[in-house]
Design a protein around this nucleic acid. Structure first.
Length: 112
DNA sequence: GCGCTTATCGCAC
DNA sequence: GTGCGATAAGCGC
């Protein structure tokens, strides 16, 4: 259920908001941006995701350039839908949900 | 190169 | 204090 995001989770959303459209970041990169060494903690915030349409959680992928999950579903039809959405932004994924253009992957989250 | 297991971090119960 | 989660990295084969 939608729990109130803690300061840590807010940092995740904030860092994610710094990611420009057409670009994606991995849990590791996002975690490094906020000072977290575990992607699971990031996934916790994403899973909570009270700002689903506001926070581009679909711009966050696994370290292996994979989409991973979306909107609570680790893998499902939602992924295909978001995959197409990302393609519209300039991020292309294959049928397996893998990132085709690694160029779209941000090396790190831009600081303010 | 691919697959499985362990480790890690934060949050909720 | 224990368990869960949208992962990451390491080790083995």
């Amino acid at each position: 259920m939608e729990r109130e995001p803690t300061e840590f989770e807010s940092s995740v959303y904030e860092a994610l908001c710094r990611v420009p459209a057409g670009k994606v970041v991995t849990y590791k990169i996002l975690g490094d941006a906020i000072g977290c060494g575990s992607g699971r903690a990031i996934g916790n915030a994403m899973r909570n995701n009270p700002y689903a349409p506001e926070v581009p959680c679909h711009r966050v992928i696994l370290s292996n350039h994979k989409i991973g999950g979306f909107m609570g579903d680790v893998i499902g039809d939602k992924i295909e839908k978001k995959r197409d959405l990302l393609e519209k932004e300039g991020v292309n994924f294959d049928d397996e949900g893998n990132l085709l253009d690694a160029n779209c992957l941000l090396a790190s989250v831009p600081s303010e």
